[in-house]
Every structure is written in C-alpha cells, then in structure tokens.
C-alpha cells in the first residue's frame, strides 16, 4: 500500500533469481535437502494462508490433502510405468485439480460451521485420512507403507529436479496470493474474515469465494504431497498424515503474518530451518518436541499478529512521527 511502486516486483524477481541460481553454486547435499524441505513448507504455508490467513477459517487438517496427493503419486506409478524421471512432475497438475474437486464437497460440509468448530471438523478429516490409509491395506499397503520406483536422477544432483519443481510451485502459489490480494476476491475474503454475516448481507458471494479459497489451497497442498512422496520414495500412513505437518503450516503463517504475501514464506524459512536444527542438535531424544512447542508458544504470545505486520506497524509509526514532528511545533503533537 505505502510501498513505492515497483519495489514489490523487484523484490520478487531478486528472491526467485537467487532461488533459481542457488543450486548452480554446487551447494552441499545436506544444504540442498534442507532447502527442498523448506521450500515444501513455504509452498504449503503459502497455500494455507490462502484459506486460513485470508478467510480466517483455521484448517488443522490440510495434511489430509497432502497425504492424498502423496498416495495418488505412489498408487499411479504402481500401475503405470515411468518412462522418464520427470513424468511424476507432469502428473502433479492433474493431482492438484483432482484433489481440489474432492475438496469441494468436503468444504461445502465443513464450512457450514464457523471458525472454532471448523478447526475441529478439519482435524477429524486428518484422522479419517490416516485411518483410511492404515486400513485400506489392499490399496495403500497399510502400516507396511507403499513404495514408488526410485527417481532415476544421478546421485550427485538428485535434489535438483525436486528443487526446481518446488520453486515453480512457490512462484505459482505466491502469484495466486498476489493476484488474490489485488482483486475483488481478496476483498471478499477479507470481508468473510471480518464479519461473514454482514458480508453476505451486502451481497458478497461468501460461499463462492470460501469454497474457491479452500479448493485452491488444498489442491496446492496435495501437489506438495505428491512431490514429497516421489522424493522420499517410500511412504507410511503416519508420516503422510502427520498432524505436525498441519500444525507447521499454521504456525509458519502465524509467525510470518497472516494474509500477507511474504509472511508464510518467511515463517517457513525461519521455522523449518529451526526445526531441522533442533532435530539435529537435540537428536534422538524427544526434547526437540519440547523446543518446538516452546517456540510455537512464544511466537503466538509475543507476536500474535506475526512478524511482518508487527514490523510494518513499527516502521509506519516511526515514519508518521517523523512527519508529524516536521509539521507541528514541538510539544503540540497529538502523539
């Protein structure tokens, strides 16, 4: 809003340029692996933000769709041969679209409820997904897990195709967010967040925009699930439907700032790297869960609105004080 014209696109261009050329500098494997996971979470947080951030419907069950996407890729290639290593990536848009369609009736039921109950209904979705994955043994392999033909990429650049696909998806989801923020859809979503009944009363098509946000959001999440399954090569129900993934999307968005373009991405880079660090340094013990929960609590208690909105507020207040100081004689200011 108060940004000078042109700063936004330049910032985005620099960010994606750095992301795109980073692997050509021959980064170490562990660093690339970390980046792959960070990008996965950046896309998912950004997708979650489209629904949870803009409409204020806090879904805790997004990982259900992540899991569906993961199983979709694995099951498809159990019955079809892979002709080239890139084929699973080409399947992703179809998976995203399919899951978005699956999400439509689910959203229509779940969104009959408001914020708090919605959170509960979506979390039961997660457990439905997990139970199904465990119990439909003929299809999913149950607790034994399911595997996919290993990706035929050379070992020394194994991560690169996944990395590139994730950068593209991040661009897509941030592009969608940007387009939403500048359009009537974004305004409608904000109206839903602030007062859904009033918004409906003055003719905002609340139902349409809510469902749209839900479907786009879960479609993107499912595509990440597909990439994850292909990257791992072997999936188990408890990891494909891990409640912590759901929580991570939410937390990253809250940390960076809800309903902002860069907030979820910033949150993902901070939290995922922090989590990898905790898991590495606190290792085998479960202390990392405690550390993670404490970070979670501190974030929400200290910055309930997220980093970007808090920082922006502070900058704005400072800027305004300077203007006021210049205009008014000392001691007379309203501030």
């Amino acid at each position: 809003m108060r940004m000078r014209r042109g700063v936004g696109p330049v910032r985005a261009a620099v960010f994606f340029l750095v992301l795109a050329v980073a692997p050509t500098f021959g980064l170490a494997h562990w660093l690339l692996t970390m980046l792959v996971f960070t990008l996965m979470f950046a896309v998912m947080a950004s997708a979650w933000n489209l629904l949870g951030g803009f409409t204020g419907y806090p879904s805790l069950g997004h990982v259900a769709f992540f899991g569906i996407g993961a199983y979709a890729v694995v099951l498809w290639f159990q019955h079809h041969d892979i002709s080239s290593g890139y084929e699973p990536f080409l399947l992703l848009p179809a998976i995203g679209l399919g899951v978005a369609l699956v999400g439509l009736p689910i959203a229509a039921i779940a969104m009959r409820t408001r914020a708090d109950v919605f959170a509960i209904v979506t979390i039961t979705l997660l457990f439905v997904g997990q139970t199904l994955a465990f119990n439909l043994r003929d299809i999913t392999g149950g607790a034994q897990g399911a595997s996919i033909v290993p990706a035929p990429f050379p070992a020394d650049s194994y991560e690169i195709p996944f990395y590139d696909a994730l950068v593209v998806l991040l661009a897509v989801s941030m592009g969608l967010t940007w387009a939403t923020m500048r359009s009537k859809v974004g305004l409608s979503l904000a109206a839903v967040r602030m007062d859904e009944d009033k918004a409906a009363g003055i003719g905002v098509r609340v139902q349409t925009v809510k469902l749209l946000a839900f479907c786009v959001s879960v479609g993107l999440t499912a595509m990440i699930g597909g990439i994850w399954a292909y990257y791992e090569g072997f999936i188990y129900p408890q990891f494909a439907f891990d409640p912590l993934i759901s929580v991570a999307m939410v937390l990253m968005t809250f940390l960076g700032g809800r309903a902002t373009l860069w907030g979820p991405v910033l949150g993902a880079f901070i939290l995922e790297l922090a989590q990898q660090y905790f898991a590495y340094s606190l290792g085998g013990s479960r202390f990392y869960l405690i550390a993670y929960a404490l970070v979670f609590l501190v974030v929400i208690l200290v910055m309930p609105r997220g980093i970007l909105p808090s920082v922006r507020d502070r900058l704005w207040r400072r800027g305004r004080r300077r203007i006021v100081d210049a205009q008014l004689p000392a001691g007379d200011g309203p501030l």
Binding site: P58, A119, V250, R286, L289, Y292
Partner: peptide, 29 residues
Amino acid sequence: RPLHQDDRTQLSVLVTFAVALLLEGVMSV
C-alpha cells in the same frame, strides 16, 4: 490469559495445540 479478546478463539486452538505438543514432549522424555 495474555491472548487478545478479538481473536482468542482462533489463537487458543493453536496455543492449546502447542500445550498438547509440550505435554507430549515432556511425557515422552
């Protein structure tokens, strides 16, 4: 208690989830 009144319901879901994780971590240790 420190949560703001206006979006307490939404935030409280997250805060209590974090408390659940904290308890899980403590119990597993």
